[in-house]
Design a protein around this nucleic acid. Structure first.
Lengths: 217, 217
DNA sequence: GTCTATATCCAGATAGAC
DNA sequence: GTCTATCTGGATATAGAC
């Protein structure tokens, strides 16, 4: 390595990680602009149809210039993945206007359904794995883990601590979303069922001593 | 058109649509062989990664020769789609070893779950729409409609005729399958929940006067 | 009926001028 | 920092020889 270590030591340390110079700010603004254009494109033409040429054109560049901001196409997908999980977390974590945990759970269900169905391309990126070779980085995935924990906490406040119940819950929401997008995109055929599905879930895991009970055949 | 119509009239009519000459049989055998190789490839590399070069190589051809059997890549997907819906229908329609409709419904649920999770590529082809521009033909889709009708009939035999209940049912199975494949491929984390999910469903739509009841908030 | 050869088009990514 | 030009490799599909 020919790196001049003494130069680094002479440089003043970053006084505040939030404080950034104009060049960094400009760069991050451009990155955000690129990602915004990428979202537009995948919403228009589908997630898999994202092409760097088109993306560059949208932001007034040529394709090679994108590599100054993202090292690869997968890196762009990863940044989008991170934005998606962050948005999902914020959607779930926003204050709920009720003190009734049951109503709160219904509100969370509606939010997740709305979040997922309102942007099929985002839903496909986050919850299905259809891009060959793409795996999100742990950093991009982290908000999804936090969101999962928050919902689990809400279930606990309802007296439901069984991990199976949490798995059942995610399956219910996922199923409604999938059917809505696959069979009635833009409609409300499964959206109308969200509240009743929550009732069904609570009736089953709430009244039973444990959701993990084994039913005799 | 320069077609010689009198030749057709002189030809003896097909005495039996099932009876085929050797040439037709050979051709259909080759088509079946191509589709079998296509299934192998999508299971190995993913649905979207199917390449005609690879497919031709698997059956000992060059890529252009495939066009003697299928007019396009989408036609191959369509034939696979038809095979998939046919297999799904057969899975559901096979005799059930019980006279108890409730147990029969559980058996159907397990079959559908097993059918879907045992072949993720097939599940992706049939129940998600990730191939840009591909729409199945009505012929390929027909068995799926028949399967839907059979399940609806089973629900009716349980006294459940509400269309909403059928939609809820499909969402439940779809959700369990999706979570299993997305978060625990090859495992049993959601498969274990199938029977309990059926119980939950029956407890909700079976005991209630109507699944379409509107719950007060 | 299968082949070689090719047309046409597209992709992601890199090198190096300016 | 952005560009032009290019590399490398892929795709689907077609033309025409054999």
């Amino acid at each position: 390595m020919l790196e001049k270590a003494h130069d680094r030591q002479l440089d003043p340390p970053q006084p505040d990680p939030v404080r950034k110079d104009r060049r960094t700010l400009r760069r991050e603004a451009t990155k955000a602009e690129i990602l915004e254009a990428a979202w537009d494109l995948v919403r228009e033409h589908g997630l898999a149809a994202l092409a760097l040429r088109d993306l560059a054109e949208r932001v007034g560049m040529r394709a090679p210039s994108l590599y100054q901001y993202f090292p690869s196409k997968h890196a762009i997908y990863d940044a989008m993945f991170g934005q998606g999980t962050q948005a999902a977390l914020e959607s779930v974590a926003a204050p709920v206007d009720t003190s009734d945990p049951r109503k709160a759970l219904g509100e969370i269900a509606r939010r997740m359904f709305e979040f997922s169905t309102s942007d099929p391309a985002r839903m496909q990126l986050l919850f299905q794995r259809t891009i060959p070779g793409f795996e999100p980085t742990p950093e991009a995935y982290a908000p999804a883990i936090e969101m999962h924990a928050q919902v689990a906490g809400l279930l606990v406040s309802l007296g439901i601590s069984d991990p199976d119940a949490m798995d059942l819950w995610t399956a219910l929401i996922s199923g409604l979303v999938n059917q809505q997008l696959a069979n009635d995109p833009g409609g409300d055929r499964w959206g109308r069922l969200v509240d009743r599905t929550v009732d069904m879930f609570l009736a089953y895991v709430g009244t039973a001593p444990s959701a993990a009970k084994k039913k005799g055949k």
